[in-house]
């Protein structure tokens, strides 16, 4: 009887504590500065989608999935109308100066506007594909702009960053990952 009574008193406390632990662990992601709206990519550790995109200007060589093999590279989805793309651009330029091959997917942009963006802020891209319909972006599972993918030497997607790359993203996630994958 007394044993039962004790269990009855402590059970709610145990349940509440267990829930607190569960909720706290979920909140951990927010405490780490991650937005709950940032979704994990469904393509992590999977091969990058197969595609072939023309360049911004018809005579440009464009960008296709075959170029992604051999070296650890970055694929950056951007548009001239996307303000956060402007914000992250200096970091993309910085990575390009460090020798990281960066490929651009120019999302639903106008030729003149895209060219203007690059001549104003600099062109860090090894090659750019113009995705006028947004179909290739859907193949990459893109839902916000900018988005940046780290692709390993085998052409597999290893990391996806949603939103502008800031200095701490560069220092804490992207640079260490590129370094680890390049070994």
């Amino acid at each position: 009887m007394t044993a039962n009574l004790r269990l009855g008193y402590f059970l709610p406390v145990v349940i509440v504590l267990a829930l607190a632990v569960i909720f706290w662990s979920y909140l951990g992601e927010i405490r780490d500065g991650k937005s709950i709206q940032d979704l994990p990519s469904a393509l992590i550790d999977k091969p990058a989608p197969t595609f072939k995109l023309p360049g911004i200007v018809p005579n440009d060589k464009g960008f296709d999935s075959a170029s992604l093999k051999g070296k650890v590279s970055l694929v950056n989805v951007w548009a001239s109308w996307c303000l956060p793309c402007r914000i992250e651009h200096p970091r993309i330029m910085q990575l390009a100066r460090e020798g990281v091959p960066i490929y651009g997917i120019n999302y639903k942009d106008k030729v003149e506007a895209a060219k203007g963006f690059l001549s104003e802020l600099g062109n860090p891209y090894k090659a750019i594909g113009a995705d006028r319909t947004g179909k290739v972006a859907i193949d990459w599972g893109v839902y916000g702009y900018p988005e940046t993918f780290v692709v390993d030497t085998k052409g597999h997607i290893r990391y996806r960053h949603v939103g502008p790359i800031m200095a701490d993203d560069l220092a804490n996630k992207i640079r260490p990952l590129i370094k680890a994958l390049s070994k």
Binding site: L39, P40, S41, A42, L43, I138, D139, W140, G141, Y143
Partner: peptide, 8 residues
């Protein structure tokens, strides 16, 4: 769609 965007 799930292959691209996950079960979410």
């Amino acid at each position: 769609v799930v292959a691209r965007y996950g079960e979410f």
